[in-house]
Design a protein around this nucleic acid. Structure first.
Lengths: 356, 356
DNA sequence: ACAAAAAATGTAACGGATTACATTTTATGA
DNA sequence: TCATAAAATGTAATCCGTTACATTTTTTGT
């Protein structure tokens, strides 16, 4: 591979002139410029970006830690990241951590070893914790080169992009309450996650506001997989007094739950309503189409990347917390509670699979 | 960030000794080694990998070009890549190309500019085509630092990992034929893709072997999305003589098709059988659970990465073509053709009264 | 046409780790 | 104990593009 010295030789100029021709053409006379450009072409010269970045100390790479790319929602988030990164000349290094702290630490180490400039974390966990912290004795507690998105740390030492999960869960629960449901179950995500905690809190907010007592047995654990929704639904249906509605913390679990309910010979939503969260593409094509909370997944990714780049360029002094909007999407998987006499909320539209 | 010279100073040795202590400890006396290791710890020294890689000329990054990460199947493939890459100390640079040639070329350029050592392409397209080819006049037509996986080029100038799509489609079609179906439709993928061509070929192979005439109107175009399966099914159902079975080239389209069929008031599989391809996680949780062809998605990714690393390390002189196995997974979305008197499935008699 | 300012170009240091080669220290054998 | 081999360590070049600073050439004003 030809280098800049080769080009300089061909063009009979110095390496500085070649570099300037490519970086700041204004500083080079037209005549020389042409000579250099011709030489560049003749040599098939492409600047070695490893050298450029080594010298500049910036890799222009961002690591993204994702529990699993196989999750449809995360895939959309990553899509958005990719878009923003590409627009800003950054590249995305994928870190599929499978939720393993060891793996996370390994990817986080890429930042300390100058393989990447910064990191985006989609899980509520500080991957730098395990690593030796930068000098804690400093006066300026500089921002970590990190952004936390979707599932954020309680007190993150970095910018965050998040949904108001509590409000969203509350909105969905209110929707179910408005349909006359009183025994509303929830299939949760992993116990430790703040996101799960927030959604449960929103669910309880709505119950409380409606004067419906909270029943612990209606909270069922899940792990965001189809299978866990299926299993959790089985448990809920086996209760002495089963729920008339199940609110799942993501769409996969909702789809799994619907499957289980139907296998039991029950109808959705005639016997049991089911709601999800995320509005993945499969939600609109579920049977029945799934009522869910739509999240701007791609926007999560784009925003996270933009924030991280701002951090890296020192444009941020405080760590902002960006809250993205959600949307309650009512489809056909939720309906009036069996036997409930409720007033028709006319705003209720059960749309078909939408376009897009 | 401390560097090797800082450590050398602390340990009162030369930089060479520090480097050797870390790279080839055998060459360093125990006494010196301990001194150096203590200094490394004291300085919190982490080798700057940008410098290492700049000097070695190897980035240890691999670019993966994927039409869209939002596709569940590709997400699994990437998962496998990640695993193999991590095991081999490589990192994955994600290139979400959206099928855009310009974008592909941009990512491919990362290889020429030493941002990555090699590239994995999941689409049947040579991204280097657009770029100036390496000196074609050479005597040794060295392998491109590229591997093509899943959807491969007809005559790829690089190793490939592929499924025998023709055989798989043939097997699925035989399954449908064995159930007594005679009007079997196919919802295809994008017209240009070799993968689609192969699956159609396999479908026709099976029809021909069974003496069932091929009907062009039963081939419906799709683009692998849920919506396109939905739309294509609508078209097929509107035919004067609609199919009794629909074989979709991926699971998303199959799920979309099932949705459409049910909306029409028809039952799956009682009225129409539907089959998919890929066996994504949603397939088992479709209603009814989807009969499909299981592909070893993660293994595609792992194999592709291993092959690429072999190419990069010069372990390969010829470009191998790896064919991975498929598996016909029969679930509940396919059943006997309506009105067909069919025998034991394993007898597979094909002399049913034809209503042509 | 000449001095001074402006523009163009060149020289060489720099970034951080590796490593060929040179040099010093230690071990070995007679 | 000395010569020599072996082990340990050090010196400095190298990878390649950028850029501060130095030098040369051109332009400008009078």
């Amino acid at each position: 591979m030809s280098n800049i010295r080769e080009v300089a030789r061909l063009a009979e100029v110095s390496v500085a002139t070649v570099s300037r021709t490519l970086q700041q053409p204004d500083l080079v006379s037209l005549k020389t410029r042409n000579k250099v450009l011709a030489a560049v072409k003749a040599a098939g010269y492409k600047p070695n970006l490893m050298a450029v970045r080594f010298r500049s100390g910036k890799t222009h790479n961002l690591v993204v830690l994702v529990p699993t790319v196989a999750n449809v929602f995360f895939a959309r988030v990553i899509s958005g990241m990719q878009e923003a990164a590409h627009d800003n000349q950054y590249a995305l290094l994928l870190g599929n951590t499978l939720g393993d702290d060891e793996m996370e630490a390994a990817y986080a180490r890429m930042v300390q070893t100058s393989q990447a400039d910064g990191l985006i974390q989609l899980r509520a966990h500080n991957p730098f914790d395990a690593l030796q912290q930068p000098d804690a004795g400093d006066e300026a507690p500089a921002l970590l080169p990190m952004v936390n998105a979707c599932e954020v740390l309680d007190k993150a030492p970095c910018p965050t992009v998040v949904l108001d999960n509590r409000a969203a869960a509350c909105a969905m629960t209110e929707h179910l309450l408005a349909l006359g449901h009183r025994r509303i179950a929830m299939i949760k995500g992993p116990a430790r996650s703040p996101l799960t905690r927030d959604r449960v809190a929103g669910y309880r907010d709505a119950l409380e506001a409606a004067g419906v007592p909270f029943a612990a047995e209606l909270l069922s654990p899940g792990n965001f997989s189809l299978q866990s929704g299926f299993d959790a639904a089985a448990d809920l249906l086996a209760l002495p007094n089963p729920p008339t509605a199940i609110f799942c913390e993501n769409d996969e679990m909702a789809i799994g739950a619907i499957q289980r309910i139907k296998q039991q010979g029950l109808r959705v939503p005639a016997d049991i309503s089911v709601a999800g969260f995320d509005d993945i593409s499969f939600a609109a094509f579920a049977d029945p189409p799934l009522t869910t909370i739509a999240q701007p997944a791609e926007e999560f990714g784009r925003t996270a990347v933009r924030l991280l780049i701002d951090v890296l360029e020192g444009k941020l002094s405080k760590a902002p917390k960006v809250i993205l909007p959600f949307d309650l999407v009512i489809r056909a998987s939720t309906g009036p509670a069996p036997g409930a006499h409720q007033q028709q909320p006319d705003l209720q539209q059960k749309d078909q699979p939408d376009k897009s």
